[in-house]
């Protein structure tokens, strides 16, 4: 009744390895999401689950269904493709929304629009800011 008992030993070890790799990475990612301070740190944590976390479990299910149905079963790979394509979209939208909200509140931790303009002008603006600082220093003296 149960196809699991006919599973070859090598397949069982491979499935176990990829399952535990995927689930373990996803758990570490969610742990990081829970523990890390600050939104921009946390945004890195779930990508563990969506990169190799998903890949490990998808590979395990490809191996399992291919072995038990004695033919190459590739449809779990579609989940991997779907997750790879959608995760960047959600994370980019979310981080842009967070940046927008932080800028609207004048949060000092995020790069402001003016700062971005300065850095894009490269070294020229750097020397400018140095001279400005010096002139402030002399003015105080």
């Amino acid at each position: 009744m149960n196809p699991v008992t006919d599973l070859p030993l090598w397949a069982a070890w491979l499935i176990a390895f990829f399952l535990l790799l995927g689930a373990g990475l996803t758990l570490i990612g969610s742990f990081g999401l829970f523990r890390l301070p600050g939104f921009y740190d946390r945004i890195h944590a779930p990508t563990l689950g969506t990169s190799w976390g998903t890949a490990g479990i998808v590979i395990a299910s490809v191996i399992y269904f291919s072995v038990t149905e004695s033919q190459l079963v590739l449809h779990p790979l579609l989940i991997g493709v779907f997750v790879t394509v959608t995760t960047p979209v959600t994370l980019i939208l979310l981080s842009r929304a967070a940046l927008y909200r932080d800028r609207a509140e004048n949060n000092p931790d995020v790069p402001s629009l003016q700062l971005l303009e300065n850095t894009s002008q490269e070294s020229g603006s750097k020397t400018d800011s140095v001279t400005v600082h010096e002139s402030i220093g002399t003015a105080k003296e």
């Binding site: 149960n2 008992t5 070859p8 069982a12 176990a16 399952l19 535990l20 689930a23």
Partner: peptide, 14 residues
């Protein structure tokens, strides 16, 4: 043997 490995890996992953 393979059933035991399979069962435990699935349980731990879940």
């Amino acid at each position: 043997m393979s059933a035991i490995i399979f069962f435990w890996s699935v349980t731990v992953a879940q």
